[in-house]
Design a protein around this nucleic acid. Structure first.
Lengths: 256, 256
DNA sequence: TTTTCATTGCGTTATTTCGACACAATGATA
DNA sequence: TATCATTGTGTCGAAATAACGCAATGAAAA
């Protein structure tokens, strides 16, 4: 099936396989070179950016929809995802944008389920930057990691969705461990701290941070030291998955 | 319009004014005689209980839908409501229940938007028990406050929704003030404490509780003492609305 | 009228946690 | 061999927390 046919079919008959009025948008966070990043798509023709999103199959839990979208855009499986908010402004409609898009493809369509109002559920995921193979969908000509601090203009309310995800991430940071998916298998204490500082957007005391994070027992110190660094080489750590998951569920009385 | 006609119209044409596949369910908490209560509806004919719910008008924000439902069931306006979770199991469908209901009314219908799968968004509210005028909807023959500890059997996943709301309430308790809508205008310290203990489901030290809650400055001590109680009479307090709202937004670094 | 007693308001103390900082160790680079 | 930015560990006073003491209150009982 060629591109045009696929598009046309999606707009004409998509409501036969997807639920109307409902979509999922994913905020996929990564961490690279000490910068927090988000995976964004650039729409064909219009060039504006958007969150990776999709629709809900008629017999699919929305958690599955989110996982499916994540898998399609990153190749990643088995990542913890969390719904964080529902966005339901009545004005959330892509009608003009969609029609413009179709015209660019060479399709004229008066009515489509895609033109109607959509309520979207925001899902967030934290993934390891280097394991992601960014893959654009058919409506986009690019998919890229964008720095959280230099975000491009985004479609509709996607910037608001992203901000909400970020805010939720900051709030959760104090009560749930972070980093298992964001960092490589083994990492140093300064790297972990930088991750926390980036998300919280403030400096933390190096020594107090270490003391507290170790008190949570989610870390395992490895008998291995980073090499090739100027100055004192830091130790490697990895997550103790058992305690990590325990802390994920029960919280960890942890205040930075 | 009589009852049957209204029902029939809702099932046949409701999708013209409401969004398909989407609903709102409200968990409305009250507090009376030191017991946490939830407002539930009892379905006609079947007799099973459910949360007050409804649908989303085509041009309505879901927050508005939730407020509209709250207003219709309680008469209350201007109450803070919060979405807390989306429930989207594909099996969330009322088909058989709805058809049985229609048969009881004397209507036979093969197809209806109401038979299809629904994704529901849970909203929670805390209201003052004595100000509520419980008003059943047309599908129910009763609306009642139920004790949180002796809940009747509930339809579909409504029990799960309620539990999630309760859990969220417990989690939030440490970071946001509670009680402004749950308690009468003026109340005593033991009453407030009992509210907290009920929600958290554990005992708190009387003296430490008082010290901490006063430290948050959300209370105003009144020059008035409760009368007619055996033993020492407690003082009345009311909420300092200004500080209360401030604490609602910013949190209040408050750990019980 | 006096005593009883459950409960309230206010206070004390020991322990734990937190924030801020000191200092020696490290190891590539100069 | 000296330099130096960075890491690992430790200290200490301040602040927060948990546990508990005791006198005051006022209706009910004696």
């Amino acid at each position: 099936m060629d591109f045009d046919t696929e598009i046309s079919k999606h707009y004409a008959d998509g409501h036969e396989i997807y639920l109307r009025h409902l979509s999922v948008d994913c905020v996929i966070f990564g961490f690279h070179r000490n910068i927090l990043k988000v995976l964004l798509l650039q729409a064909k023709y219009a060039g504006i950016w958007s969150l990776p999103g999709g629709f809900i199959l008629k017999d699919e839990h929305m958690d599955e929809s989110a996982r499916r979208i994540l898998k399609n855009r990153t190749g990643l499986d088995n990542i913890f995802m969390q719904q964080f908010h529902v966005f339901s402004q009545p004005s959330r409609s892509n009608k003009e944008i969609n029609q413009q898009f179709l015209r660019n493809v060479g399709i004229e369509m008066k009515e489509s389920w895609m033109f109607e109002r959509f309520v979207t559920v925001g899902y967030s995921a934290l993934v390891e930057f280097r394991e992601v193979k960014p893959t654009a969908d058919v409506y986009s000509n690019a998919i890229e990691w964008q720095d959280i601090n230099t975000l491009p203009e985004m479609i509709l309310d996607h910037r608001e969705i992203l901000d909400k995800a970020l805010q939720q991430l900051q709030t959760n940071l104090n009560y749930h461990p972070i980093g298992y998916n964001l960092l490589p298998e083994k990492f140093t204490m300064p790297e972990l701290q930088k991750l926390y500082e980036t998300i919280l957007n403030r400096k933390l005391d190096r020594r107090n941070f270490q003391r507290k994070i170790i008190a949570t027992k989610v870390l395992k110190k490895l008998n291995e030291i980073k090499k090739g660094v100027a100055h004192k080489a830091p130790n490697y750590y990895k997550f103790d998955l058992k305690n990590y998951k325990k802390a994920l569920k029960g919280g960890m009385g942890f205040e930075l």
